[in-house]
């Protein structure tokens, strides 16, 4: 199976009054049709910016270098016009905050149908019918009535369903969901995750799930990549990542996730602060917080090394030693 979306050596930097800041450094990823890739990291780890770059949505002071190919088409060198034929049509994105991500002065129906009208040149009537169909598919009750509502008349959960429906309108090959549940209530979160699982089963799309929550990834992703300070530190199948985490940061994240099946006395946290991107530690960016740190970590940056089963990680310490 070939990858629909391939990211190769992507670096994203922002120019600020205090100098350039690299939000993403030399990231390579790929995702196949029908597969769900979970991209995990703290806020500021560069996970969102990686895909903002793919969508051509970086802030104005941001620049991206490297390559991002959608089915062989390089997205980074595409101009706005070319990008517009791909965005919404072949690659779609679901954003974190459904409360502010819908245009407040447009009716839901129109916001949905305009994607189709733009890309597939259907007429308004067909667009509306397909929008209604899609609202039903994402299980929005009374879909017909909602078409003529404004976003503020819908709850957060419903709005996120609308966002998902919007992303699905053209049945894109790649769907990027950026923290789709973070802004929602816990019960609603579960419903949205169920919906995403359903989308994954029914469509042959590649799904990228960006989240800081390993629990979200566990149920949905086939493969998981972990980012720290703009770099991928570990990547592997969801089974490997959860059963045999090979990077101290991943282990830390796993330890932080509260579990019902294991009795612990207190919540575990990773000590120290998330890194300051303007002033990254030397060597391995994680070394100030790492409990396995050795001198080498402070001066050299570990490269990603392959282990078995496509599992890769960037750490100097032997896997066994780390995996206790």
């Amino acid at each position: 199976m070939t990858s629909v979306l391939e990211i190769d050596g992507l670096t994203v930097s922002f120019s600020t009054p205090d100098g350039d800041v690299s939000a993403v450094s030399d990231v390579s990823l790929s995702v196949e049709a029908g597969e769900c890739l979970g991209l995990v990291g703290e806020s500021g780890s560069g996970k969102s910016q990686t895909f903002m770059a793919a969508m051509g949505l970086l802030a104005d002071n941001g620049t991206a270098t490297g390559e991002i190919r959608l089915d062989g088409i390089d997205l980074l060198s595409a101009n706005e016009k070319k990008l517009n034929t791909l965005r919404g049509e072949r690659i779609a994105m679901i954003f974190q905050d459904p409360m502010t991500s819908l245009t407040p002065h447009m009716k839901i129906g129109r916001q949905l149908s305009e994607v189709l009208i733009e890309h597939q040149k259907v007429d308004a009537r067909t667009g509306r019918a397909r929008a209604l169909d899609m609202l039903n598919r994402v299980h929005i009750p009374e879909a017909e009535r909602r078409l003529d509502m404004y976003p503020h008349e819908l709850s957060g959960g419903l709005r996120q369903r609308v966002m998902i429906a919007m992303a699905l309108m053209c049945e894109p090959e790649v769907i990027v969901a950026d923290e789709p549940t973070t802004a929602l209530d816990v019960t609603v979160q579960a419903q949205i995750l169920d919906l995403l699982a359903e989308v994954k089963d029914n469509l042959d799309a590649a799904i990228v799930l960006i989240t800081h929550d390993l629990g979200v990834v566990a149920g949905l992703a086939d493969r998981v990549a972990v980012m720290y300070a703009g770099r991928i530190v570990e990547q592997g199948t969801v089974g490997d990542i959860f059963a045999l985490p090979a990077h101290p940061y991943t282990q830390g994240l796993l330890a932080c996730t509260p579990r019902l099946d294991v009795e612990t006395e207190a919540l575990v946290t990773i000590s120290g602060q998330p890194p300051n991107l303007q002033n990254l530690p030397s060597g391995c960016s994680f070394h100030p917080r790492c409990k396995y740190v050795v001198d080498q970590c402070k001066s050299e940056r570990p490269a990603l090394e392959a282990m078995d089963n496509g599992h890769i990680r960037a750490c100097f310490r032997p896997h066994v030693e780390v995996a206790q």
């Binding site: 969508m55 051509g56 949505l57 706005e80 016009k81 990008l83 517009n84 034929t85 791909l86 965005r87 919404g88 049509e89 779609a92 994105m93 954003f95 905050d97 502010t100 991500s101 819908l102 245009t103 407040p104 002065h105 447009m106 305009e114 994607v115 733009e118 890309h119 966002m163 919007m166």
Partner: peptide
């Protein structure tokens, strides 16, 4: 700079339409 303008751009709407339809009224 709002999120909904970003959404409109992510939909692949031409820039002119993003401005006129999604940004201008607000």
């Amino acid at each position: 700079r709002t999120n909904y303008v970003r959404t409109a751009r992510a939909k692949g709407l031409p820039f002119r339409m993003v401005i006129l339809r999604h940004a201008f009224k607000s």
